[in-house]
């Protein structure tokens, strides 16, 4: 019985006492301060700390040792050890990144693949989300379920399944040859096309869900109003639906673009030897060359590349909110 005490309850009733103690206790105040701090603590432990470690590594030099880089801060030497390590840090790895064309090329290629994939995702996802938002109310939970359903199978297995579909003697080529569309098997696997197929397939829910969330809230009488004022449906789509869906489009595009830039599994499994992606380059540096400092530098650069669009989105979002205020 923990309801809010009514004003007519006697002064010593248990409920009044509970309220009194909740008001004062110093422990409660600490808990209250902790609640909003929790996400920050989370970010501090699981994002900022690893990033600082990676950044520190990127300023070191590779070495044939365990761990494979120097300097390592020697905490036994106390402050001297820290200062000693700091004095040895340099930005050589970052200058090295600009020297070798490979890194810039893989970064650019990643951005290109991510950009094209995002556009493809938008082209596939928007009609899907639109149809879902327009579907009868009773069918919506089922449609939503179908979009989320692939998550119930391992991502890796789903990407492997595409190998079976796309390979020269795979399902797709068998079907196409069977119905006589082609007589030579298409070489799709190990090309950029395969990467696009894999990426669009894997990231589709991340595009559809935010779009659906926006379109589902859209007031369809606005489209009727547009038509009533002499606007044909296709024009109303561009003048009313798209501007109002913009927050969903931006959210979906970012949600896809950012992880695709750093995507590793899909190009590794479906891409060819010359499909360059920064995630693959990074992994090669870590595991093939065992050059942890350089790999860390690549990771830092990747982060900076990816932060760019996020900042632009945030800027747009704030401007939009300010405008509507």
């Amino acid at each position: 019985m923990s309801h809010i005490p009514a004003s007519d309850s006697p002064p010593d009733s248990p409920s009044t006492q509970i309220v009194a103690s909740a008001k004062a206790g110093p422990g409660t105040r600490l808990v209250r301060a902790l609640v909003p701090a929790l996400p920050f603590i989370w970010l501090l432990i699981f994002f900022l700390t690893p990033f600082i470690i990676v950044f520190k590594m990127s300023l070191s030099e590779p070495a044939t040792a365990q761990p494979p880089y120097v300097p390592v801060i020697d905490w036994s030497e106390g402050l001297n050890g820290l200062l000693d390590a700091l004095s040895q840090f340099n930005f050589e790895n970052f200058t090295l990144l600009t020297d070798d064309w490979l890194y810039a090329a893989s970064a650019l290629s990643s951005l290109r693949i991510a950009a094209i994939s995002t556009i493809l995702l938008l082209l596939v996802g928007f009609p899907m989300a639109y149809a879902m938002a327009k579907a009868p109310e009773k069918h919506k939970p089922l449609l939503l379920m179908m979009v989320i359903l692939p998550f119930w199978t391992s991502f890796l297995i789903r990407v492997y399944a595409w190998i079976g579909i796309l390979k020269p003697e795979g399902l797709l080529n068998m079907v196409l040859q069977g119905i006589g569309v082609i007589d030579q098997p298409l070489q799709i696997l190990n090309t950029d096309t395969a990467i696009f197929i894999g990426v669009v397939y894997s990231y589709l829910p991340f595009m559809v869900l935010p779009l659906y969330a926006t379109l589902d809230k859209l007031d369809w009488t606005l489209l009727e109003a547009a038509q009533d004022l002499g606007c044909p449906p296709w024009r109303a789509f561009w003048q009313v639906t798209v501007p109002l869906a913009l927050p969903g489009i931006a959210a979906g595009a970012l949600l896809c673009f950012i992880p695709i830039v750093g995507e590793y599994v899909i190009p590794e499994l479906l891409g060819g030897p010359d499909s360059l992606m920064i995630g693959k380059t990074l992994s090669d540096e870590f595991f093939r060359n065992r050059d942890w400092p350089l790999a860390s530098a690549v990771a830092v650069v990747l982060l900076i590349i990816v932060i760019g669009p996020v900042m632009i989105f945030r800027e747009l979002e704030t401007r939009r909110l300010e405008k509507s205020r």
Binding site: D219, T221, L222, E224, A225, A226, Q227, D228, L229, G230, C231, P232, P233, V240, P243, L244
Partner: peptide
């Protein structure tokens, strides 16, 4: 509807939220 010489004022008003008053009226 977009070719009929009638116009409608909707119960919910159905004003375009992304346009200002002027643009709404000019639509």
């Amino acid at each position: 509807p977009y070719r009929r010489p009638v116009n409608m004022m909707f119960q919910s008003y159905a004003l375009f939220p992304h346009m200002n008053v002027e643009k709404n009226i000019a639509f």
